[in-house]
Amino acid sequence: MSHSSDDQQKRILYANQLGKRVTSGERELVILESLALDVERGESVAIVGSSGAGKSTLLGLLAGLDSPSSGELEMFGQSLSALDEDGRAALRAGRVGFVFQNFQLLPTLTAMENVMLPLELSPRQDIAAKSRQCLERVGLGARLDHLPKQLSGGEQQRVAVARAFVTDPDLVFADEPTGNLDEATGKRIIDLLFELNRESGTTLILVTHDMALARRCDRCLQLEGGRLQALERQRQEVDA
C-alpha cells in the first residue's frame, strides 16, 4: 500500500475489497463482498440498507469489533488485519465512541458512572469533571446520580451520547441510534448527535434505515447485495 502521509492524516477509515462470509452448517453465506470505503476526518457518513442487509456486520467490521474474511481495512492509518483483538482494542481506546440502538448502559451504574467508564480506562485526572460537563451538555446535569431504569429511553440514549463523546474521540459509530425511540425524541437525539459532531470535529459513521436521518449526513451510502453504493452527496451539492 502506498498512501501519502497527508492522506493518512486525513483518512480515518479505509476499506478495500472487504468481504465477510459466515458458514452456517454446509452453506456459506456471503454477507459483504468486495466492499470499498474511504472516510476522511470530520466527515459524516450514513450507511443505509434494508433489514438484514448486513449493516450491523459492516459496522462491527469497521469498528474493529470483528475481523473480515477478506480484504483490507485500515483505521487511523493502521491496518486492522495486522492486529489481534487486543491490538484492535488498544487502537480504539480513547479514540472511538459508540452509540447503540439499545443504549448499552450498565444497569447498576448511575448515569455519571456510565459516562465515566471509558475515561477510567485511560489514565487522566479530570474524569469526574469531564463526565459531568458532558452530561450537562446533553441536558442531564440534574440526573447525574440516576440509574438507567430511572431514566426515560430518550434520557438513556442521551447518556449514551455523552458517553460516546466524553473521550473527545476521532471517530463515533452510531448504530440505529433512534431505533428504540419515538419520533420526537429520536429527532432531539439526532440534533444532539450532529451538534456534538460539529462542535468537536468528530468523524461520524451512522448506520440507519431512516432515510431522513441519513440525508443529514455529508454522504449517504447504500448497502445492497453486500456492496456499498453512493446514493448522493447532498451537502457538497448544496455547498456547491
Partner: peptide, 17 residues
C-alpha cells in the same frame, strides 16, 4: 451480568489481560 460491561470495555479499548 458483567458480560455487557466486559464487551463495552472491550469496545472502549480494554485488552483481554
Amino acid at each position: 451480568r458483567h458480560l455487557d460491561t466486559a464487551a463495552l470495555l472491550r469496545c472502549f479499548g480494554a485488552s483481554q489481560r
